[in-house]
Amino acid sequence: MQQIINFVLRNKTSLLFLLLFFVSIALTIQSHSYHKSKFINSANFFTGGIYESASSVSNYFDLKTQNEILVEENNKLRSQLLNDLDSSLTSISRIDTTTFNGRYKIQTAKIINNNYSASKNYLTINKGEKHGLKEDLAVITSKGIVGIIDNTSNGYARVLSILSTKSKINAQLKANNHIGSLEWNANSSSIVQLTDISKFAPVKQGDTIVTGGQSSIFPQGIPIGIVDNFVLDISGDTYTVDVKLFNDMTNLSHVYIIENLDTEEIKLLENPVNE
């Protein structure tokens, strides 16, 4: 017994080093699996508060570009509204409210921390559970998709960016319904990869890629980007397409959070209770 204690005392630095090193490796591995990194994340009271106060200062620097983006979006929505008005005059059963029987609930939030240089990137937004956010909600901007909420605290939430090797999102060609999954190879912050597109799909440079209807997270048809380049896979069955994003992921500020109110029902239907 004496010898064991002596051994521990003699090698206490090495033992402490090994212990702490394994703790950090364990934390790293845990953070690689989806929804597991409960403890080490920036969506907590402390870091969220610091990021929020820092972003309240740095906000002023890009007010001009953010205003331009807003005006551009307003312009788009207004033209949609005016063009839609003509066709809707014929349909009588139009209900004049935005919330009645809607399938999607939309909220706005502000990004207070944005990363895009690592291989698994996260964003922090200034809304959380007390605003009704939870895991697996879609986050988009007026131009395209941003990511999926993967962790929430009371006042803040963490978003798994599409610029992450962990992220996998169902996407499709806009022109026809060939679907694939959207991934990222960590090379460039403006290019993501769309894999598993069938080789029979007519892919062209400049085609638009939108979200597919197969996930219950994103609504169908949210713009993602355009085809930049494409190659046939090694197996020869599928294309891997480089997609140039509409969003400038390095300069994001205001985002929309989309909640699909039917998610519960869809999940219940897809995973029936085992008997």
Partner: peptide
């Protein structure tokens, strides 16, 4: 630093190693 940059435990592992 890990908590701030959402990186699991990579900074902690690297820091402990160089300290050792």
């Amino acid at each position: 630093v890990d908590i701030f940059s959402d990186s699991g435990g990579v900074h902690a592992a690297a820091c402990v190693s160089i300290a050792f």
